[in-house]
Design a protein around this nucleic acid. Structure first.
Lengths: 235, 235
DNA sequence: CTGGCTTAGTGGCCTAGCCTCCTAGACTCT
DNA sequence: AGAGTCTAGGAGGCTAGGCCACTAAGCCAG
């Protein structure tokens, strides 16, 4: 039936975990009780009872909060709030991957524009070859009616490599999974692969002529194209 | 009841928690067993026994790994490595490559400039309060002859929070440790704390007046100041 | 007042067990 | 055969209760 099956995979729907719920509840509690940095949460036993869960589960929630940097659990003393502003708002939304799309685009845009700029300045001939190779691969895919997803990914990897910044590259890797979703989705729309290929060429040309500003501009344009500008424009 | 106690910052040195140790061990295991994205960890019961801990404690470690984005625990299936290449090695790699100051500065600059820009556009009054509070804290530190490191960190955290982008915030967290080193180092030089405080004020003012471009420019200037421009220029 | 002791309260971790969920393979029906 | 259904076992989710280690505060002797 579904030839489009690939588009709807990933994203395991709902995996309700008690500790996640507890994290939210505890955050709400912190806010409503107007607890500030240095204050301590109620004792585990009491908190567990009040929330209607076992200590073991509460312990998981506390670990999560600790990893998130919200609290600092001290043996014999209790869980004290870490001195840091506005953490709750930062953490919210980490849960639902769905609603993160705009932010993902944002992060991707930030990183890739910088990468394109650096690539123009630092590329070697080998880097250029890799970029051209990716372009050819994508052109071949598009010509045969495919979405060109593989060539697309290759291209961005080649540009990332050409920027010669291990740290930025690692950050890209970090959000790679999320970016992939965005990319596949937009490439699926008719006409998009051709447009995308064209803007790839524009980026490549700017990098070829070592024009940092043009490369950055072209990349920005490209990302806005494939990401549905509406998502970015509302801010 | 100690009025001065607050300034001293507590910082309990050693708080050995079993789950933290387990996180390390599991990461090592993933690497040594050459597990990749999609592979699943051994069953909880087996893993617990092999590591010599109870399931409850192991569960805490798994929660931590999940929050860190390394694994995805699925009910009935197991803990599968997240679809994202080399997360363990990415994290490790970043820890080891601390010597790459220029690249770190580069990454920080990229992210924080964007964050400042977004903060100017999206800040709430609460965000602004947090930023101002951080400025005051830093001013107090500097006035008393300290480096102002805590206020500095607070400030950047407040700006990050004001940008309201969980994904970018996550990326900042990712490189936070390295950034901290950079920052502390430069703040140690005479005269720097005052300069740094001044440029913080400039950033804050731009954010206050919702001027994205000015905020971005001020942040860029600030980072170049505290990072010793020479580090950037040589490339 | 000082220092040591006691004690109550807190988190750390464990054992044991039952529940729900997922999946592969056996077992049907066509 | 092929396709749908059922089922057993293994996986994680969570609970209950218990013991130990640590911390802080109060007490008591010096």
């Amino acid at each position: 039936m579904a030839k489009q099956a690939a588009t709807h995979q990933i994203s395991r729907v709902s995996r309700p975990r008690l500790y996640e719920q507890l994290v939210e509840q505890i955050m709400d509690f912190i806010e409503s009780a107007e607890l500030g940095p240095g204050d301590t949460l109620p004792a585990e036993r009491e908190l567990a009872e009040r929330l209607g869960v076992s200590r073991a589960t509460l312990a998981q929630a506390l670990v999560a909060l600790e990893v998130l940097g919200v609290i600092d659990v001290q043996h014999g003393t209790g869980a004290v709030l870490v001195y840091r502003p506005n953490v709750p708002s930062v953490i919210k939304g980490l849960r639902e991957h769905r609603s993160r799309l705009p932010e993902i685009v944002e992060a991707r845009s930030t990183l890739e524009v910088k990468l394109a700029e650096l690539a123009a300045a630092r590329r070697t001939e080998q880097d250029m070859d890799a970029i051209d190779h990716a372009l050819e691969a994508m052109a071949a895919e598009v010509a045969s009616g495919e979405r060109g997803a593989r060539g697309d990914e290759l291209f961005h990897q080649a540009v990332t490599a050409a920027a010669h910044s291990a740290v930025l590259a690692q950050l890209m890797t970090f959000i790679a999974g999320m970016v992939l979703e965005t990319r596949l989705e937009s490439l699926g729309q008719p006409g998009r692969p051709e447009q995308s290929l064209a803007s790839h060429r524009k980026i490549a040309d700017a990098i070829r002529s070592r024009d940092s500003a043009a490369a950055a501009a072209a990349m920005l344009e490209h990302i806005e194209l494939v990401s549905d500008v509406a998502l970015l424009k509302n801010s």
